[in-house]
Design a protein around this nucleic acid. Structure first.
Length: 273
DNA sequence: ATGGTAGGAAGCCTA
């Protein structure tokens, strides 16, 4: 196989939205699908329904009610099994696998804490947790050295660029776009030598969103979105980037998630040495 | 400046 399609989606309950995975597969034809917020204990994961969509290889890390990640794949992989216990909370926010493609490919699926409403770590433990998590992730990448043959995806819950939000000015004090978060995320990206795969295709001067709040009367008319979901690749994979989709239409599906699926396509034969 | 909606678990948390 020459082209590899990787999709990331904050599904906001894998059991509730299992039927929407059929639509996603039809629209994006992913080889590998990384989910966040599965909200499903491992023993209750809908393996049968997912296998019926062609994902014969699955890694799940869930818990009751909150969080949870899953990697579903048509391609065999090995769970890395060396994932840290982030912030010593045991809260199911990361999975790492080695994909069985020629030469190998490391893939990480993250769900970064949302961080609550008050952007002050002294007043808001959830915001402190978010900053700690991102700092730990940066340290983890730093210790591992520059990434190679690697992809990192997920709901990182931070919109770093001015045009990753509908109004830079109005969101400067809103959690997900505060300078302290943006600085932390940028430090993480630099620590791992990660390359922003979506901004490879869409210039930073153009608006790009992957999330629209449930709380808007009309999400599409208001279009007050944010780019919270990301695909980062190691620099050797930059020349291999051949396609992308932010599936905005998914926000209009019945019983939609507030996040939409994001796809990137890689031609591994075009990888840099 | 405020409050708006959604999912899960089980009478409130998280997003």
């Amino acid at each position: 196989m020459s082209k590899l399609r990787i999709v990331t989606w904050n599904i906001n309950s894998v059991r509730l939205r299992l039927p929407l995975l059929t639509e996603l597969v039809r629209a994006l034809e992913p080889d590998v699908l990384c989910l966040q917020e599965t909200k499903c204990p491992d023993a209750l994961f809908p393996h049968e329904g997912v296998a019926a969509l062609g994902f014969g290889h699955r890694a799940v890390r869930g818990m009751k009610g909150y969080n949870g990640t899953a990697i579903l794949s048509r391609i065999p992989f090995t769970a890395r099994g060396d994932d840290p216990d982030w912030c010593a909370k045991g809260d199911c926010r990361h999975l790492g696998v080695d994909l069985d493609v020629p030469g190998g490919l490391e893939l990480h699926d993250f769900y970064v804490p949302a961080g609550g409403d008050i952007p002050d770590p002294a007043l808001n433990p959830k915001f402190a947790h978010k900053l700690d998590f991102v700092a730990e992730a940066a340290a983890w990448n730093r210790a591992r050295g520059p990434s190679r043959r690697s992809v990192l995806v997920g709901d990182l819950n931070i919109a770093p660029l001015e045009h990753d939000v509908w109004s830079h000015r109005q969101l400067l004090k809103i959690v997900s776009h505060t300078p302290v978060e943006v600085e932390a995320l940028t430090a993480w990206q630099q620590a791992g030598h990660w390359y922003d795969a979506l901004r490879h295709f869409v210039p930073p001067s153009e608006k790009l969103y992957t999330w629209w709040s449930y709380r808007a009367r009309d999400w599409e008319a208001a279009d007050r979105g944010r780019r919270l979901d990301h695909v980062w690749v190691s620099h050797d994979l930059a020349p291999a980037l051949t396609g992308w989709t932010v599936l905005k239409a998914a926000r209009g599906w019945p019983q939609a998630s507030d996040h939409v699926p994001v796809m990137i396509e890689l031609d591994l034969s075009k990888m840099a040495a």
